[in-house]
Design a protein around this nucleic acid. Sequence first.
DNA 1: TCAGACGGTATCCTTTTTGATACTATGTGC
DNA 2: GCACATAGTATCAAAAAGGATACCGTCTGA
Lengths: 119, 119
Amino acid sequence: MPRPRHERFDCSPGCPVEATLALIGGKWKGVVLWHLLQGTLRFNEIRRRVSGVTQRMLTNQLRELESDGFVIRTVYPEVPPKVEYSLSERGRSLAPVILALQAWGEANVNVAGQRDVSG
Amino acid sequence: MPRPRHERFDCSPGCPVEATLALIGGKWKGVVLWHLLQGTLRFNEIRRRVSGVTQRMLTNQLRELESDGFVIRTVYPEVPPKVEYSLSERGRSLAPVILALQAWGEANVNVAGQRDVSG
DNA sequence: TCAGACGGTATCCTTTTTGATACTATGTGC
DNA sequence: GCACATAGTATCAAAAAGGATACCGTCTGA
C-alpha cells in the first residue's frame, strides 16, 4: 500500500507545497482529477480518456485519491458491474491547483519536445 | 540523468496537468522552488531551509530544475566555493502554480505543530 | 594538527513506483 | 461455445526514485 512521501509536514515554511504535491503527485492523479472536474465518470470512461494508463495503475491511483478524500467511489450492485467516480467537496477544492497546473502546462510545455535551457 | 516521466504530452486534454506535474513533482522541487521564489540562495542556505534533504538529493533536484530551465546556477570561482541559485524567467512563471499548491496545502493539510507560515 | 565550512561526487543499497500479463465473475450477443 | 464488456485482483519483474555514507580540495580558526 503506497504511502505519502512524507509522514509529517511540520518541517518548515514552504512545506504545504510539498504536502500538496505528495497528495496529487502520482503519475496519473493530475489527469484523473482534471477529468473528474468535468463530471462523474465510470471506471472505463476514465481509462479511455487517460490514454496510456493500465487498469492496475488506474485502480491504484483512484484508490489513493479515494483514501485521501478527493474522490467518491459509488458501486452499483449490477451485472455487469457499474462503478462511478466523482469528486468530493475536498476534491473540488483542488480545482484552482489543477487549473493552475493546466494553465502553466498549456503555456509552457511544448509538445514537440523542444526545451530552452540557455536561459 | 533522470528523465521526465512522459516523453510526449500530446496524449489528450488534461495532459498539460501531467506535464507540469512531471516537471515539478520531484520530492523536493516544490519546496526548493518556493524558497527560491523568495530570492537567490546559496547551496547550503537551501539545504538548511529544506530540512531533511540530503546533499545528494538537493544537488540532484537542483540539477534537474536547472536542466528544465527553472533555475540558474551561478558559480563564483572562489575558495571556499560559492554557488548561487536563482529562478529564471521560466522559473518565476511557476509562481502561480507554487502559490496555488501552497494555498491549498495551508488550508487543507493538517500539519501537526505547524505555526505561522508567512506568505 | 584537527575540525569545520563550502559545494559538491561516487558508490552502494533499499524502497517505491510502474508495467506486463494473466486471471476472476457475470451477463449479452453471435 | 466463444468473444466481449463490466471492474477489478494477483503475481512477477523492471525501472525509477530516494537514502546513507564516504570521499574530494581548499581555506579559516582553534
